[in-house]
Every structure is written in structure tokens, then in C-alpha cells.
């Protein structure tokens, strides 16, 4: 039972995290003033992530 609860929490966190990433990618298109990409997290991608932007 305890394994099921922890698993459910982890899946929910993963869903929230990925959902937020997807939302931020779409937000760039909806808001044209954000002319610099939020980044794709890939090797070789120079665009910084939205999280780093927020930190600064």
C-alpha cells in the first residue's frame, strides 16, 4: 500500500513537471513579446531555460 501512495505522488509530480514544460513552450507562441526561446534542455541548444530566466 505504501508503495502505491509514493508511486502516485511521484507520478503526480512528474505530470506537473512535464505539464509545466509543455505549457511554457506553448506560452511562447501565445505571447509574442517573449522573443527568446525558453530552451529545449538539449545538448547543443544555447537557449537558456525559463527557470534560469526566472532566477535572474
Amino acid at each position: 500500500m505504501w508503495q502505491n501512495i509514493i508511486t502516485a505522488i511521484i507520478v503526480a509530480i512528474a505530470l506537473f513537471f512535464i505539464g509545466k514544460k509543455v505549457y511554457r513552450q506553448f506560452r511562447q507562441i501565445i505571447d509574442p513579446s517573449k522573443d527568446i526561446s525558453c530552451g529545449c534542455s538539449c545538448s547543443g541548444c544555447d537557449s537558456i531555460s525559463c527557470d534560469s530566466k526566472k532566477e535572474n
Binding site: 512528474a14 513537471f17 512535464i18 534542455s41 538539449c42 545538448s43
Partner: peptide
């Protein structure tokens, strides 16, 4: 590091 970070975050989540 970008590769590792992506594997540990986005790829892990997916």
C-alpha cells in the same frame, strides 16, 4: 552536462 541534466529531469519525468 546538458545531456545529463535533460536525462535527469525531462527524460526522467516522461
Amino acid at each position: 552536462w546538458q545531456y545529463i541534466k535533460k536525462a535527469g529531469t525531462v527524460i526522467l519525468g516522461i
